[in-house]
Design a protein around this nucleic acid. Sequence first.
DNA 1: GGTAATGTTAGACT
DNA 2: TAGTCTAACATTAC
Length: 266
Amino acid sequence: MPELPDVEFFKEYFKDNSLHKKIINIECEDKTLIKNVDFRDFKKSLIRKSFRDAWRIGKFLIAEIKGISENLIIHFGMTGSLHYVKQGEERKRRDRFTRLCFRFANGYELRWINIRRLGKIYLTKPQNIKLIEEMGPEPLQLSQQEFLRLLTNHELKNIKAFLMDQRNIAGIGNVYSDEILFQARINPHRKIEDLTQRQKKILFQKIYQVLTEATKILTFYRAFPKSWLEPHRHTNDLICPRNKNHKLKRETIAGRSAIFCPLCQT
DNA sequence: GGTAATGTTAGACT
DNA sequence: TAGTCTAACATTAC
C-alpha cells in the first residue's frame, strides 16, 4: 500500500487520532525493526510523552515528540499500515501483524502493522537517514521546469526506473508509476531520451493528477475509478480500461512487476 | 505447494 | 561513470 498517497493518508490518520495523547506504554513484537536506537532507550524516550505534529517526506512519516528533538520516523515497507483502536481489540485480521504499538492514557492504542517486516522505525532526526537526506523533490511541489530539468539529468535511464527512484522524485513506487505511465500513455520500457517534449509535459501533469486524485480517493475511503489501471492489477481480466479490445500486459520492468497496455502506451 | 506481492539496497555486470 | 539486473531481507495470500 504505502506510496505517497497512502503515506499521506496515514499521516492524516495519525494526526486525527494520535496527537496530544499521553503515551503510557509501548510494546514491540520485533525489536530488530527499530533502527538507530535500542528498544529500551526508544521506550524511555517516548513514555509519558505525546506526539505534537506529523508530516510526510516521500514514503516516510515523521512525528514530532513533545519535549525531545528527535523524531519518530516510520517507513512502512511493502506491507505496512496504521490502526488506532481500543487496547486489546482485534478488529481486523491484519492486527495480528502488529509489530509496534503505542498505548495511550485514554485506553486506545496506535498499531504499526507490518506483515512482511520490511518496514523500519527510527528515533532520530530526518537528516540522519540516508534515504531522506538523498531524497528528490516532492512531486506535488515540483514545477514543470524543474521536472524537465530532472529528466535531462537522466536521459539514458528507463522512465519507470526513474519515477520509482526516490533520489529523483519522492514518494512514487511500483503501483503509482504504472498508473502515471498508463494515464500519460507512455510505455514503461521507454528511455527518457526517447520521450518527446510533449510526452514529458503530459507526464508531469499526470504525476500531479494521479497522486492528488489518489490521495483524495483514499481520504474518502473510495475505490479507484474504473478508468484507472489500478483496479486491474488485482484481477486477471487483463482488460485495458481505455479499450476493452486491448489486452494488458504484465512484465518485469526495472525489477518490478509492471502492468501496462502495449497498444495505448507508446 | 508454488508464486507473487505497494520497498530498499548491495554488489555484480554491461 | 551510469544504468541494469539479481539477490536478499521476511511473510502472507491466493
